[in-house]
Nucleic acid binder design. Structure first.
Length: 308
DNA sequence: TTTCTAGATCCGGTTACGTCA
DNA sequence: GCTGACGTAACCGGATCTAGA
């Protein structure tokens, strides 16, 4: 309504306590890295559509990308597979077959289905497969002895503390594993690779869920603060409008703060009121912080900077 | 070179089991 | 002992990527 034209002072004190210095949520940044590392298997659409993608950590990113991409999931470990094969019940097959037998969920399911469909002979083979996979780990359990090579019913094996600890430590280093690492870890923990795989999937899901909660909380706070700020400004506007409607009051009023705008850079400066703070330039203060995407944008882009 | 297919892996969602109050 | 809540291992289905035919 052109308060500026009337020379009305407007005190702009957009101060919100939190996150003035945060470019954005640190959790979000973590999240980004997490996401990035999680997604290095690359679902391009998902990644590209994600706002998270705006904050890629190139270092970690490239690291993880090389970590997985370079690994060449299907090919590179072939030599590795050979030596793992030896302890993996001597299954002689290329890597894909090994991992399909040892860890592939579909393979297990398909084997089950095939066994069920085909009858006795293949069931024996299937059981042998299962035993083989268990002999890699789960069959001889450490303490609770809850073996899991069995009749296809869903058996839930509680991981021991040691196992969980190692898995956690490994997860801290890599949120995803290549087949070689997976098999090595499974061997180390006396588990099936499928169990390791499932654990990592669930762990990633938990991490993501937790991060989502944190982000949600953060955004909620942002919203609350902005709402509060909006309310305050609305109130201020209505007060100023009231003043404007009663000029005699306005004439006798000495403005607590006068904002003047530099004609060259259009920055707003506080220049009046001895009691007020020392003259300072109010730049883009925003509830979301200076680096926030919502931070104020200069009124007009001017090539020449101010003459202060 | 392009297309198709199989296999591997991921994720989101769900189910089922173990534990605890 | 029973029960509901909660955590989580395991599963399912769909999407995507890659290698090989």
């Amino acid at each position: 309504m052109g308060e500026r034209d009337h020379g009305l002072g407007l005190s702009l004190s957009l101060s919100l306590g939190f996150n003035q210095k945060e470019p954005s949520s640190p959790h979000m940044h973590m999240h980004m890295q997490q996401q990035q590392s999680n997604n290095n298997y690359s679902h391009p659409q998902k990644i590209q559509n994600s706002w998270i993608n705006m904050f890629q950590s190139s270092e970690r990113n490239s690291d993880m990308r090389s970590f997985l991409r370079g690994i060449d999931v299907n090919r590179a470990p072939s030599t590795v597979v050979v030596d793992v094969e030896d302890d993996a019940a001597g299954v002689s097959s290329p890597n894909s077959t090994v991992s399909s037998v040892m860890s592939g969920k579909r393979s297990e399911r398909e084997l089950m289905a095939a066994a069920a469909a085909a009858g006795g002979g293949s069931r024996v083979e299937d059981n042998e497969m299962e035993r083989a996979s268990c002999s890699l780990g789960g069959g001889s359990d450490d303490e609770d002895g809850s073996g899991n090579g069995d009749d296809g019913s869903r058996k839930k094996l509680r991981l021991s503390k040691e196992q969980a600890l190692v898995l956690e430590e490994t997860f801290k280093e890599h949120s995803t594993l290549n087949p070689k690492q997976k098999m090595a870890l499974a061997k180390q923990l006396n588990l099936r690779t499928r169990q390791v795989e499932v654990w990592f999937q669930n762990r990633r899901a938990r991490t993501k869920l937790k991060q989502t909660e944190v982000d949600c909380e953060y955004l909620k706070r942002c919203c609350e603060n902005l709402t509060e700020e909006n309310r305050r400004l609305q109130k201020e506007v209505s007060e100023l409008r009231a003043l404007k409607l009663s000029p005699h009051l306005y004439m006798h009023m000495k403005p607590p703060t006068t904002l003047t705008m530099c004609p060259s850079c259009e920055r707003v400066a506080v220049t009046s009121s001895p009691s007020s703070v020392a003259p300072s330039v109010i730049t883009s203060s925003s509830p979301m912080g200076p680096m926030s995407p919502w931070a104020a944008i200069p009124l007009r882009q001017r090539p020449a900077a101010g003459s202060h």
